[in-house]
């Protein structure tokens, strides 16, 4: 229930940002359009996915409590990653190479979140996604020690993302 409400609020917010007004009529139009989109999305998911697992209100609230950590942690990752890439841009890249990051998230939406998190961070580029093995192939600028890269990324996944997108 909270999930549906959140989606409607988020979509209405996006609509209001695009039309950039807070008139009552615009808000009403936004709510109607957002509800339509959410309803269609739910119906589509019910027919395509096998069984959407029922989630309790407490579980949803616990996930929501992790969102600030997710966003803040991602911003920290982007800043440190940018600093790394700036150093490599102005100097010499140490040892670029491809690294597999195994045993990450389990569901498609978590994969999407992880991919966006890895992609928006400049020091990792997502090259290949293997959903069956639950692994992502990334390119990093300093790959002389793949184990360290793996440990760092998995630690970041666990501390930042796992609560919201397991």
């Amino acid at each position: 229930m909270i999930g549906i409400l959140l989606r409607v609020v988020a979509l209405t917010g996006l609509y209001l940002l695009v039309v950039s007004s807070t008139k009552l009529g615009d808000i009403a139009t936004g709510v109607v359009l957002a509800s339509l989109v959410v309803a269609v999305g739910r119906r589509h998911r019910r027919t395509s996915a096998p069984t959407p697992a029922p989630t309790s209100t407490r579980a949803t609230l616990r996930r929501l409590a992790g969102v600030p950590t997710l966003i803040g942690g991602t911003v920290v990752d982007v800043v440190t990653g940018s600093a790394d890439v700036i150093r490599c841009c102005l100097g010499r890249p140490p040892d670029p190479g491809l690294v597999w990051l195994p045993t990450g998230p389990t569901s498609p939406s978590s994969f999407a979140a992880w991919g966006i998190r890895l992609g928006i961070t400049p020091n990792t580029v997502v090259v290949e996604v293997d959903e069956e093995r639950g692994a992502v192939l990334v390119h990093v600028l300093d790959a002389h020690d793949p184990e360290t890269v793996r440990d760092e990324q998995m630690a970041s996944y666990r501390s930042r993302q796992q609560r919201v997108f397991p």
Binding site: V78, V85, C88, P96, L98, G119, P122, N123
Partner: peptide
């Protein structure tokens, strides 16, 4: 302009397209 290799250039480019 400076980096060699497609992947390395992608790192530099995502500095501009993201942050």
């Amino acid at each position: 302009l400076r980096m060699q290799g497609t992947y390395s250039k992608l790192h530099a480019q995502s500095l501009a397209t993201g942050p």
